[in-house]
């Protein structure tokens, strides 16, 4: 009975939304997009929003990677919210997995190949993660993938050494400092230029590492934050071990 209802509902949702999306063209040229309208100055622009980003993005933000320019600069406030969401997840998991009387679980050692291999790889993975988030404004990637790569290095350690335990205090301090960096960068923008999250540093030469103003700074903070948060989530979920 319940299954039949679920099938009917699923088919209904499929049909209703498919009918809506049939009307939406796929893969059309950007020149057919509608032009945007600025509600504050009451002016209609002569191009669409994505065209504006692609045409003026480099001058507006100094970043080569337009997705990064949007994520960190044009819509940086969303990213601040996103970082907060991840922070909330790590805080929430930490509070739900908190145990008052710590009963330690027995765990088995893994074998020598895994242990040595993970020791060998750990540094390289961290380095790769750092590379990804430092170059976020130039190449595909950025703070979130970079942070996830760093967390995967820690995950490897958890697999190889079942007794391994990242210090929660240290993780939460690095989380906090990275989050505070983001907010403080935003507030400095507010003080200097009157806009929260304003890109107040010089843009430099495009395609160079030190370019795009505050974007690399924010992405480094995000990378550190995401790395420590995902590690903290994994650590909380593993529980207390011996």
């Amino acid at each position: 009975m319940k299954k039949a209802l679920a099938i009917v509902l699923a088919i209904l949702i499929f049909i209703v939304f498919a009918l809506a999306f049939v009307k939406i063209p796929f893969g059309e040229k950007m020149s057919t997009y509608p032009h945007y309208y600025n509600p504050i100055t009451n002016q209609t622009s002569n191009m669409s929003l994505p065209q504006h980003y692609l045409t003026y993005g480099k001058n507006d933000t100094g970043a080569t990677n337009m997705v990064t320019a949007i994520v960190v600069d044009y819509r940086g406030f969303d990213t601040l919210g996103e970082v907060t969401v991840l922070f909330l997840a790590s805080t929430g998991v930490g509070s739900l997995m908190y145990v008052e009387n710590k009963v330690k679980k027995k765990v088995r050692r893994s074998n020598a190949v895994v242990e040595t291999g993970s020791k060998l790889l750990f540094g390289f993975i961290i380095l790769f993660g750092a590379y990804i988030f430092i170059h976020g404004h130039l190449t595909p990637g950025g703070g979130f993938p970079g942070g996830a790569v760093i967390a995967s290095a820690f995950l490897l350690l958890y697999l190889a050494y079942p007794k391994f335990h990242a210090k929660h205090e240290k993780l939460s301090v690095s989380e906090s400092i990275a989050g505070l960096t983001f907010v403080i960068v935003g507030l400095i923008g507010l003080i200097i230029a009157g806009y929260f999250l304003y890109n107040f540093l010089p843009f430099g030469l495009p395609t160079y590492l030190f370019s795009a103003g505050v974007i690399p700074l924010i992405y480094v903070a995000i990378g550190v934050k995401v790395g420590s948060e995902l590690t903290a989530i994994v650590d909380s979920m593993m529980g207390v071990r011996e």
Binding site: T41, Y74, G76, F77, D78, G189, G194, F196, Y198
Partner: peptide, 15 residues
């Protein structure tokens, strides 16, 4: 009150 964030006019940035 409109508060433009990041210094980009809407709809380019968030307001």
């Amino acid at each position: 009150v409109f508060d433009i964030i990041g210094g980009f006019q809407p709809p380019l940035g968030i307001v």
